[in-house]
Design a protein around this nucleic acid. Structure first.
Lengths: 194, 194
DNA sequence: AGCCGTTAGAGACGGTCCGTCTCTAACGAC
DNA sequence: GTCGTTAGAGACGGACCGTCTCTAACGGCT
């Protein structure tokens, strides 16, 4: 009886548990996060956790979802393809700031099916952004190979996964200006370019 | 005394240990590989392992190194940039066939400093291959942004890490023909366009 | 207001594996 | 043949897992 007889229930309790998991993650990292640790931090017992999530990985995934919203709640529309793509990449970076590589690697090692929205979400956002650009006449959509569409996200993801330090803004600029845009212009040829 | 009094020593013993680790890896995967399991398979005690490697991760890394050689023992020289790059990518894929994502994720989760040669090796090979192409007059080397050089390896690595199935040959062709070569031609100008 | 079903909170439990430690005897060097 | 090293074997305490058990607080129902 750590609460002096006051018991949390339902959604309120669940939120407490997920926040405790999030704090524990920040405090000790994924590798040393234990169910016992989270339970203690939430001032409850392990069983309360196991009633909701089958294991560490499920709990952490739920905690992440509870904390960080979707990257693509709204599709950027700045007026140029360049800035739209940069905006999307910056959101990925901000997400990385919250969720360290440590956590990603740990999760990937424990749950093999970790790519539900992970890929598709960014592909859909990129498709939308490219369609806007096509409507403005910046490029011809159907000339673009599928792999080019996911290119910026793929490159940045690669960077994030092996980064020891936070991603530099300059990296994003390189991805967009040295790789993505030249390639788009070369294959889906712009109207006249600058 | 499982060996009837015959004791292995030095290099011979070490090779036995590493092979046992390799077999155990193939048998149960990284997640369920235990020091006790490897010791039992090698018909020895745990202490013999701990005298040589500090933990599971070190042992596995040593086992991988002992088993699989370097990707770039020899730089390909087929006569065209396209085939040279494809050759390098195919070697990466073959490597992936030996070392499952399961192992990579496990190692990355346990040892943060997993990228010593991991990156640099492929960059050096790509640089060499590009220099050959430049010598043949296929392109102008110094016009190529650094990020373009590592592009094929970065993309393939991204693919390997999240792949549930072995990489299709077609994926390699897309990377080279839809992304890399068009970009090289666009920025480091070949003989023809622009 | 009082009963009743659910479940929070707490911890015991057996099990696995970790990494350390201890001991004996096989082996290589001299 | 003697001696130092270390392979081989397993015991050990510790951490954490996931399950199970128990009590009592709480919400819903009549």
């Amino acid at each position: 009886m750590t609460q002096g007889g006051v018991r949390r229930r339902g959604a309120e309790l669940e939120a407490s548990l997920l926040e405790a998991a999030w704090e524990e993650l920040a405090a000790v990292g994924y590798a040393r996060l234990t169910m016992e640790g989270v339970a203690a931090r939430a001032r409850t017992g392990k069983q309360v956790l196991y009633r909701r999530w089958g294991n560490r990985a499920e709990l952490v995934v739920a905690a992440l979802r509870h904390r960080t919203g979707s990257i693509v709640d709204r599709i950027p529309d700045t007026g140029t393809l360049r800035d739209d793509v940069l905006t999307l990449l910056r959101r990925m970076v901000r997400r990385q700031h919250d969720v360290s590589p440590d956590v990603i690697h740990g999760l990937l090692a424990e749950v093999p099916e970790m790519n539900p929205e992970f890929f598709t979400v960014m592909r859909e956002a990129m498709t939308a952004v490219l369609r806007q650009a096509a409507d403005r006449g910046e490029l011809t959509l159907d000339a673009l190979p599928a792999r080019v569409v996911t290119l910026p996200a793929d490159l940045l993801r690669n960077e994030i996964f092996f980064a020891r330090e936070p991603i530099a803004e300059n990296t994003l600029l390189e991805i967009v200006d040295d790789v993505f845009l030249p390639l788009v212009r070369a294959t889906a040829g712009g109207t006249s370019d600058r």
